[in-house]
Design a protein around this nucleic acid. Structure first.
Lengths: 340, 340
DNA sequence: TTGAAAGCGCTAACAC
DNA sequence: GTGTTAGCGCTTTCAA
């Protein structure tokens, strides 16, 4: 391993001078700077990150923690993070939080003790609370994305799920629907609760009652959505809802499939709205293009790195909070209801 | 920050003893061990990774390098890696290699100098060659997956693309096809070349000529596949191929879509075989279930961590090489050709 | 079995 | 502008 000492000897200067050159200090004569740079190149020197981290108390990296890194849902977010990282002086590493509690704790300890300078935690699992409280208690810089955490003054980036859901349901109402069902994802994720709240807000504001069997809990297994939509369709047309608002696009896709497989039409017999705007031709989704609420995940990913970099550099006040608006992408799964 | 010194003082022992307890050395009296453990718990101590890495010359982590971490294609691989990591004493970090050459080099330097102990490089881009040569030249432990690298004795895990492709094409031949087209992905990826070779091998072995316009280059833009399949279908039925073997499932999916959109049937008018077995109901692919060559990505991911861990621990001889077989998953996109 | 001391590679404070 | 020195937190000789 080549060290500063080797370079120093080769360039006939002190280690301190080599360090100065590496770190771009101004008080080095041009001639010496040239010589040191040449030696670095000749010897193929690169500073050891562990040693540097130790003395600087900075690891030079930001860790992005995701549940299920393998989910295709993260595409835009990751792309944004990558592009954000390109503009940051810090490197970004991605970490997948496993299910095993002990491994998780160990992993967090690993990251927060000399491996990374800050953590981005994406997702709104209630089960993340102990992690968040730990990070807060040890005063480790972190930023939450999509986790509306009220009990502590933390840095967070949110999207307005309630507004997004409300807008989607109001769009259905404006299109003429009044019996609108909701397929709700796992309530252990805050976003699903918020979207549910947006749905109820819109319904209540418009004086529309919510029938008990119009709320379906889909939890983790998306196939429940398939069955749930078929259950609805088997009711007489004048009794069943004319539209479904879903917590996310996967649920919407399965619901649509269930309806189509019974020989009904989307949107003629049933309108469907999703959330996330995640399924499209590019990822080989070939079903009907789903009208869906889009969150600006790319921007969120990109901005999160920049904000966190600024926080670390002290150019950004904390706690920092920012909310992003959603956008309703109108595609082909919504039409006026048949009149009954 | 709590350090060994703090713990030492609290437990009224020396720092060396604390270190011994942390690292499970045997020569510590039970009483002292108990006291130290208690102090560690009381103070909430966790060893600093930078300091530890510096002295041990081990970072305690394995870096997984992926191009386009955001690709849904990596799902099974990442899942396997996660599960492999759970059995390893080392942590796994995921890294996305950007497009910018300078950033890339910097990132590699960052990883190889005190940030990680070994690298897993997935993918068969020819452009990875400089990275591989660099890692080799600095004697940094690494493992290639799906990159058949011949010029240096490196650790690698491969799948038998040629065999897989040959088997797929022979299945088509056995089903009665003789005019079989090939939609070939980006030739800058070795896997696509290998699959092409498997195709030609099968054709030649069975005495089937390959018509010039039956080879379509799809490169990066999958939509080219859509157009290419439509071009084929516009030829008279007795002249056009009766089956297409595609470099991957995305290409296959677009080809199928092109055929269907012209009002033709898959597999009645055209049989299609893909590679990767990647598109299914779970990731919201709703087209015809594609007959496809499946690679054991989960196993590869899991095994790669274990092999690399063993290599680092010196319990696995190097260079290490292993090849995995593929499996043809027969679904609904292949049927005997109509007789002409 | 335990402690004192040296040193991993680097940077920063201080001297010149 | 440059070198000397100390020290980041940890592990590991070496002595006791």
């Amino acid at each position: 391993m080549i060290t500063v000492k080797d370079v120093a000897k080769h360039a006939d200067v002190s280690a301190a001078t080599v360090s100065r050159v590496i770190n771009g200090a101004q008080n080095v004569s041009p001639e010496i700077r040239r010589r040191v740079k040449e030696s670095i190149k000749t010897l193929g020197y690169f500073p050891n990150n562990a040693a540097r981290s130790l003395v600087l108390r900075q690891a030079g990296s930001i860790a992005v923690l995701l549940h299920n890194l393998h989910s295709p849902f993260y595409g835009d977010l990751i792309r944004g993070i990558e592009d954000g990282a390109a503009t940051s002086s810090r490197n970004v590493i991605f970490c997948s939080l496993g299910r095993n509690q002990e491994n998780r704790d160990h992993y967090i300890q690993f990251l927060t003790n000399g491996t990374s300078d800050a953590i981005i935690l994406y997702g709104s699992m209630f089960s993340d609370q102990p992690i968040i409280e730990h990070l807060y208690s040890v005063n480790f810089p972190f930023l939450l994305i999509e986790n509306n955490f009220q009990s502590l003054p933390v840095n967070q980036i949110l999207i307005d799920n309630i507004e997004g859901a409300r807008g989607a349901v109001e769009y259905l109402i404006d299109t003429g629907h009044s019996r609108i069902a909701h397929f709700m994802g796992n309530p252990n994720k805050k976003v699903n609760l918020e979207r549910f709240n947006g749905y109820t807000e819109a319904m209540q504001k418009n004086g529309l009652p919510i029938a008990q069997d119009h709320i379906k809990n889909i939890f983790e297994d998306d196939d429940l959505s398939y069955k749930a939509s078929q259950e609805l369709m088997q009711q007489p047309a004048e009794a069943r809802p004319t539209a479904i608002f879903c917590s996310n696009d996967r649920i919407a896709a399965k619901a649509i499939q269930g309806i189509l497989d019974l020989g009904f039409s989307v949107p003629d017999d049933m309108s469907v709205v999703g959330f996330d705007n995640q399924l499209n031709y590019d990822n080989c989704y070939h079903g009907p293009s789903i009208t869906s609420v889009k969150q600006p995940l790319y921007e969120i990913g990109r901005d999160s790195i920049q904000h966190l970099t600024n926080i670390l550099d002290g150019t950004q006040a904390t706690p920092f909070s920012k909310s992003y608006h959603t956008e309703l992408v109108k595609m082909s799964t919504v039409a006026p209801p048949k009149i009954w």
